[in-house]
Write a protein that binds this DNA or RNA. Structure first.
Length: 596
RNA sequence: GGUUCCGUAGCUCAACUGGAUAGAGCAGCUGCCUUCUAAGCAGCAGGUUCUGCGUUCGAGUCGCAGCGGAAUCACCA
């Protein structure tokens, strides 16, 4: 049991004895003492003064006396304006150091036997390559998966690829008309980019044809409907749905190009899925659920033949679940895939990492499955909603060519890292080690830049300003790690065994103790990040830790220390910091180098 | 117009879920490399936490009203 919880437990007893106040013992009643005050742990006594009918300082004193009597780990206390600051014995921190410094898996909890958490993310369309918006989605999904696994939850990562519909038909039509049989190999570009290019080609010709029709006197709307290239795309979609072998073969071919491209992008981002669903397989699902709702009387068949659900009681609107021609809409499909996944994995929780533009959709999905259909998994659906990535010019618009392409962005980050490293004069790397380092630093900077922001918030990305490598950034943290690894290499060279037992009677003091206390908090931070599904908590923690260590490093000799016991203590703290930085960054999907 | 989310230093973001004097980075200015890695460290400057009212021992955090921004309110996904 950690000391906060033990303390809270005793606090509960003491409050009952002294004032007959009954509380729930909760570790959040105990917080770390702020640096500017003496002590290690703080209890705020204001909540009890009214019931105790005494002055705050008196209450704090009485509680402090009793707690110190009861707990050996406490050595004393002071009271400042109703804040009870308790001091913890040095030996306690020494024990934490002994337990933690060599633990390669520090902050990773044992996996529990329980229903898995299913998490869906990425969910691309196959008509264009991944862009910055997908990058935020992918990084969030991957990081949250890592965090949940670190907390001990089994996790199933799934992707749902939107591989069918009018969008891919547009690329197909344009490729047939203007492609001259071009392939990724012949054009030497990634398949997803190739298909994306034809999507743009489609749009260009579509606009031209519309303009011609308007010149002939058609209205804008008529022109949009009747442009020949659009009619072809619709016909293509119709033939696809009818199972036309020729259309299906083309569709297969172009989608395979796209998947090869996606796979490369995913691999570079460092993400993978346990299972990939394709909408071409799932879009017909859900109809039986709609029938079930009709049978139960919770859905209504409208006079025009469409099936709808009335959610006005819940403060929402009426929502169509089945078109009047009986075909599925997006919602129908999502109802079906939720059911499918439930049957397949029996998850305790289903997380959907999807942008906040779909908040309404997920409100409806949850309500329909839970309240209306009474499905047990309705309430287990959680929409991890994140804000848009905006450019200085506003939202990214694919039609206006302002999207930031994921592959280009990663190339740019690599290049920035290369230039930055070279300008710092660090040339003593072998070519392959250098390339690996640039990739690690460049992608690290990108990932950290995105993940340190609270998911709920919109964020700004300015392509004109490169992502920083100084300050609150991944390279700063990677650098701190590399420095420590360098120290540890030096120790090994000088035959100092960091794993040696520390002599008794020596304890972390001053800055050393501050770092040990910070390290001690890490597992709690992991749990908090898991509960809040927030990689930003990890990012903030890791930065604070690195910053604190750098300060220490600057002022305190470590390998230069001549007292062997002190040197060993500091090396162990350093190693613990390095492990924690590495493990924390891993949760963000960021690797750390041995040297940089 | 209804609903939801957001509003903190010039800019980008924090603030342990209601606790002590709101913190970092960038940008600006000052110092520190004959070396445990300067992608670092120390310092200066920068704030009516959008506004107002309320809740209580205590509010950036909770409630209400307003202002500003975003998303959404499709038989698109």
């Amino acid at each position: 049991m950690n000391i906060e919880l033990a303390l809270a437990e005793e606090l509960k007893n003491v409050l009952h004895e002294l004032y007959q106040i009954d509380i729930q013992a909760d570790a959040s009643l105990v917080q770390p003492t702020r640096k500017e005050f003496e002590g290690d742990l703080t209890i705020v006594v204001f909540p009890y003064v009214k019931l105790a009918r005494k002055a705050p300082d008196m209450v704090a004193k009485e509680i402090g006396d009793r707690l110190c009597e009861r707990m050996d780990a406490l050595t004393g206390y002071n009271v400042v304006k109703g804040y009870l600051n308790l001091s913890v014995a040095d030996g306690y921190w020494l024990e934490r150091l002994r337990e933690g410094f060599a633990d390669e898996r520090y902050g990773l909890f044992a996996q529990r036997e329980e229903a898995p958490v299913l998490i869906e993310y990425s969910s691309p369309n196959t008509n264009k390559p991944l862009h910055l918006g997908h990058v935020r989605n992918n990084l969030l999904g991957h990081s949250v998966s890592q965090i949940l696994m670190a907390c001990g939850h089994p996790v199933v990562q799934v992707n749902l690829v939107n591989d069918r519909g009018i969008h891919i038909c547009k690329s197909m039509v344009a490729w047939l008309r203007y492609g001259n049989g071009e392939t990724p190999e012949s054009a030497n570009i990634k398949g997803d980019h190739l298909v994306g290019n034809y999507y743009v080609v489609f749009d260009k010709h579509y606009k031209e044809e519309q303009a011609e029709l308007i010149a002939k006197g058609l209205s804008e709307e008529e022109a949009a409907q009747q442009a020949p290239i659009m009619l072809e795309a619709r016909e293509m979609l119709r033939r696809w749905e009818a199972g036309d072998p020729e259309v299906r073969a083309l569709w297969e071919k172009m989608n395979q190009w796209v998947y090869a491209g996606f796979d490369a992008t995913y691999a570079r981002l460092g993400i993978h899925f346990d299972k990939t669903y394709y909408e071409s397989n799932t879009y017909l699902l859900g109809k039986s659920l709609v029938q079930e709702g009709l049978d139960k009387g919770v859905f209504q068949r409208h006079e025009d033949g469409s099936v709808r659900v009335n959610l006005t009681d819940e403060g929402l609107d009426e929502k169509v679940l089945l078109r009047k021609d009986g075909t599925s809409v997006y919602m129908t499909q999502d109802l079906g895939t939720a059911q499918l996944r439930y049957e397949e994995f029996h998850p305790g929780k289903m997380i959907y990492v999807v942008g906040n533009e779909q908040n309404y959709h997920f409100d409806v999905l949850k309500l329909v499955l839970g309240k209306k259909l009474g499905k047990p998994f309705g309430d287990s659906i959680y929409h991890l909603s994140y804000g848009m990535v905006e450019l200085p010019s506003g939202k990214m618009k694919s039609r206006e060519g302002t999207v930031v392409d994921a592959d280009d962005l990663m190339d740019d980050m690599f290049e920035e890292a290369k230039q930055s490293t070279e300008s710092l004069g660090k040339f003593d790397f072998q070519p392959d080690e250098a390339a690996a380092l640039y990739e690690m630093v460049g992608l690290g900077a990108l990932k950290y830049f995105i993940l340190k922001v609270d998911p709920a918030k919109n964020m700004l990305f300015n392509p004109a300003e490169s992502i920083d490598f100084n300050g609150n950034t991944a390279p700063f943290i990677q650098y701190t790690h590399a420095r420590i690894r360098s120290l540890l290499r030096k120790a090994a060279e000088q035959s100092v065994n960091v794993a040696d037992a520390l002599p008794d009677g020596l304890s972390p003091e001053g800055e050393e103790k501050l770092i040990v206390k910070k390290l001690y908090q890490y597992p709690q931070v992991v749990l908090a990040a898991g509960e809040n599904l927030s990689p930003a908590l990890i990012a903030n923690y890791v930065y604070d830790l690195a910053k604190q260590f750098n300060h220490f490093y600057q002022e305190t000799p470590i390998m230069r220390e001549t007292d062997a016991a002190k040197r060993l203590l500091r090396l162990q703290i350093s190693q613990w910091v390095a492990n924690t930085l590495r493990n924390g960054m891993k949760l963000l999907g960021i690797d750390v180098p041995e040297r940089m």
